[in-house]
Design a protein around this nucleic acid. Sequence first.
DNA 1: CTCGATGCAAAATTTTTGCAGTCCC
DNA 2: GGGACTGCAAAAATTTTGCATCGAG
Lengths: 160, 160
Amino acid sequence: MTTTDTQTGDIRETFKDFLASKGLRVTNQRLAIFDAAYGNSDHFTAEDLLEHAREIDDSVSRATVYRALPILTESGLIREVDVGKDYKFYMANKNATTFQAQVICLDCDKIYEIDAPFMEWYGKTVADKLGLNVESQRLQVSARCGGDPNSACQRGGKTS
Amino acid sequence: MTTTDTQTGDIRETFKDFLASKGLRVTNQRLAIFDAAYGNSDHFTAEDLLEHAREIDDSVSRATVYRALPILTESGLIREVDVGKDYKFYMANKNATTFQAQVICLDCDKIYEIDAPFMEWYGKTVADKLGLNVESQRLQVSARCGGDPNSACQRGGKTS
DNA sequence: CTCGATGCAAAATTTTTGCAGTCCC
DNA sequence: GGGACTGCAAAAATTTTGCATCGAG
C-alpha cells in the first residue's frame, strides 16, 4: 500500500521540491524514509524509522536514515523532539501551527503534545533582553501517572 | 586550599548529612567531587567535574564521578541541565529558589539561567489535565548572538 | 558520464557495568 | 571485620564517518 492519499501526496511533492531546491537528489531511499516518517502517527526514534523505511524499501541503511534526518528537519517536514533520553524522538509535522510543549509520562513513556502559544512571546522577550535571536525552544513537563486509571495514559490509548 | 568558606562549609555538612541519612558512606572521593562541583561557578560536564575533582583528590575515577552525580542531583545540591547536547551539564544549586529556564547561545555555547516562576503553575495545570503529577520541567530557548557586540555574550564575561 | 548518495563496517562518544581489591563505619 | 565503595577496563548504545560502489540527472 503506497501512502498516497491527497494530503500526504502533496506533502511528498513538497519534500521533492525541497530536495530539488537544495540541489539534493530524489532517491528511493529518501522517499522511503519520508513515507515511513509520515506513515508513523506518533513519535518515533531513528531506529523505528529505519525499521519502517525498510518495510517500504528493503535497501535503506541505518546510515542513510541518520543522513536523511537533518534534511527532513531542516525542511520543516518533521520535527525533532528531544526529551532528554539518550536517543532522540521525531514526529511528522502534519499541522505546523503554534509552538508545542511536551508532557512526558515517565511511567508509560508516553509523550503528549500541547499547544503553548505564549512561548512565541516568551522566547523573544527573554532573548531580546540578552541581545540574542531565538532559534528554537523547548518546554517540557516530565510527570507520572502512577498507574492511575483516571489518567490520560491509562484511559487514552496509543503507546508512544 | 580546602574550600571552606562559611557558606560552602555548611553545604558540605548538608551533603555529609544527606549521605548519612541514606546510609551511604562519606568517602574522600565523594567529598572531592562535591567540592569540585561547588568550586565550579558555572555549568560543567561530567568530564569537567572529573578533571576538577582530580585536582583535589588524584584518585577520583571517571566511574565514581558518574556514580556520584545521581546522588548529588537527588540530594538537590546540584542540578542537571540537559540542553540537548549529547552530554549533560550540571551546576551547583547555590540558591535553589524558583524554577529556572535556560537561554543557550548556539554561537558561544553559553548558558544563561533565567527565573521563570510561572512554570510552577504551568506544569501543574498542564499535568493536572492529563491526570499526571509533575516530576520536573524544562524551559529552554536556543538563540544566537551572531557576534553582536551589544549582546550579553560579547559584553558579558565568563565562558561556559 | 559525473558526482552526489548509499551500504557496510569500523570508529567515535558518552555513560554503564563486572570484578577484584580497598577502606568507611 | 563486613559490606559498601572504588578504579580499571571492557561493554553498551546511539550516532558518525571512510571508502568503494551505485545511480540520479
